[in-house]
Design a protein around this nucleic acid. Sequence first.
DNA 1: AAACGAACCGAAAAGGTTTTCCGTGAAGCT
DNA 2: AGCTTCACGGAAAACCTTTTCGGTTCGTTT
Lengths: 342, 342
Amino acid sequence: MAQATGPSRSQPATLSDVARLAGVSIATASKALNGRSQVRAETRQRVIEAAERLSFRPNQLARGLLAGRTGTVGLLTSDLEGRFSIPILMGAEDAFGAGEVAVFLCDARGDAIREQHHVRALLGRRVDGLIVVGSRTDPRPSLGRELPVPVVYAYAPSEDPADLSIVPDSVGAGRIAVDHLLACGRSRIAHITGDPGYLAAQERAVGARAALADAGLALVGEPRFGVWSEGWGRAATAMLLDQHPDVDAVLCGSDQIARGVMDVLRERGHRVPEDVAVMGFDNWQVLTSASRPPLTSVDMNLEQVGRAAAHALFTAIAGARRSGVETLPCRVVIRGSTAPLS
Amino acid sequence: MAQATGPSRSQPATLSDVARLAGVSIATASKALNGRSQVRAETRQRVIEAAERLSFRPNQLARGLLAGRTGTVGLLTSDLEGRFSIPILMGAEDAFGAGEVAVFLCDARGDAIREQHHVRALLGRRVDGLIVVGSRTDPRPSLGRELPVPVVYAYAPSEDPADLSIVPDSVGAGRIAVDHLLACGRSRIAHITGDPGYLAAQERAVGARAALADAGLALVGEPRFGVWSEGWGRAATAMLLDQHPDVDAVLCGSDQIARGVMDVLRERGHRVPEDVAVMGFDNWQVLTSASRPPLTSVDMNLEQVGRAAAHALFTAIAGARRSGVETLPCRVVIRGSTAPLS
DNA sequence: AAACGAACCGAAAAGGTTTTCCGTGAAGCT
DNA sequence: AGCTTCACGGAAAACCTTTTCGGTTCGTTT
């Protein structure tokens, strides 16, 4: 009953179909299509035309079964919803797509059980490697050393130093942010940032202080930790202006916070950037370009993190293992909210 | 040289390894692990333990090769960056993950050539079906009727009515938005929306007008089309207030526009929601909850669109084809920016 | 005791591709 | 003419799992 190539939808052509149509053996057809040299040019041409006519696509399953390599990798995110996973994922997909590698996407939704389940499923499909994408930069548990394929951790590093992790340089990000404000001639710089439980918040503050110290300066007051929201940005700014009305720059832990900061600054009659310069982190387009004025922000180069992770996985699959945490530099994107003091 | 199970990383165990360890044939091992009935309980136990010890995972490639079904689907997005693809993708991933189906993610980046390339690659991997996710609701070209696997279009419908498409009900969205404003006692409702080249903008306006007409009312002025930005929301609101200072509600084409609208309303001394109610579309958390007051918005239920697409693909793979454009209802999420007139 | 049935297990084929090895024929050389 | 060399094409194994079908063993029945 099943062989009716009939009405609806025929099976895809197989290599033996091509061989039959071209009047050669399966082996010859394979060699002709793969550019092997043991086949006459004329024969090769005949095979190629036959494959064309049948719109033959080699079955990657069979190929993978034989080769022991499938040309697939697993991309395991812990949180698709969060906006940090997406650019990383794009970078990785981009890097792999160019190399004929297909990507299995799995979202663990922050659940370790589900993550374990996905890992097992991916290994059953014989992926050549795994990329684990976190939703924040705090270290996360390793998947273990016993996996049969290489693993690269992106954004959230593994707790096990034997694993390879690719993360943005948060300390450096704090540094270059302050360097930019210093270059704008600011010297009374405050720092309003988010949840102190986030390593990124701590590291950016460390970098900012280090850059100020190098210039013989210090923050105006202590860093103000809170939550990653506009509301906190507004509240913290109100307090800041009460205590330090002479502040000439505010470095904000995120673009959202910066948005709130700028609103209150404007409401209180401080001009941005003439009186107070404002910077954010993350360079989240929808916020930076909607602000008045557009917001200068530190871009974490997440797409590049994804690409680097993909590249590292490539080389690991080829046999060259690395380990440890590798950091990638961030960059300042200058917009209207920061400008030299006139 | 290759058989050294040696130092670094051994090959995954195969069924014949398990069979050998358990002292049975390959066939029996397979039957034991798959719950077939022709094997003694004690033997089955022995096999299961052997599989456990070797941490055996059946090779899905071999299984797929044999069964003709791979348990994989392709998810083809035209634009990962845009925020509409992500929830759809999450819904689809969620629905498939529960069913032991793995998802290949491909991002065409809005390029038809790249899309074609990805389709070919996916077919080479013998996916059982395809979901095509668009970045806007305007119809897009079909992948064609000649594909060997079923295809479901999500968010952006196919131009070919023979294809199956799942989209949110934009006209209905406009309707329920106005219905909500009417229920709040508003009667002088303006509409500030985005790019008129977007079908979503047109359809929402159509729905809004229809709901008003049903109540014997009309919009305050014409719908104001522009771009999907806060800046446009601010500019349009300024004009609106000049011409119609007595407006008591503004229906905005997106949450971004709504954000701009609210800013200007407040600056001009109009209270939200006491004097003017404001609504947006998309229910984009980061904007709706950061607004002052939090923004009432129409949620397009995109995750549900993704789930429905996955489900439709499931049944199509099982043989039950549908066709045409199926719409899913949207829902109003009420927050502080709309309230009954006191 | 012979025959029968049930329960259990194994051999083998199938799925599609790549690769190795062998065979055939022709051309080149002495 | 007889030999080697070369170019080309084909047979078959391998990858791993599932399933069908046939075979063995043991207990039961007449």
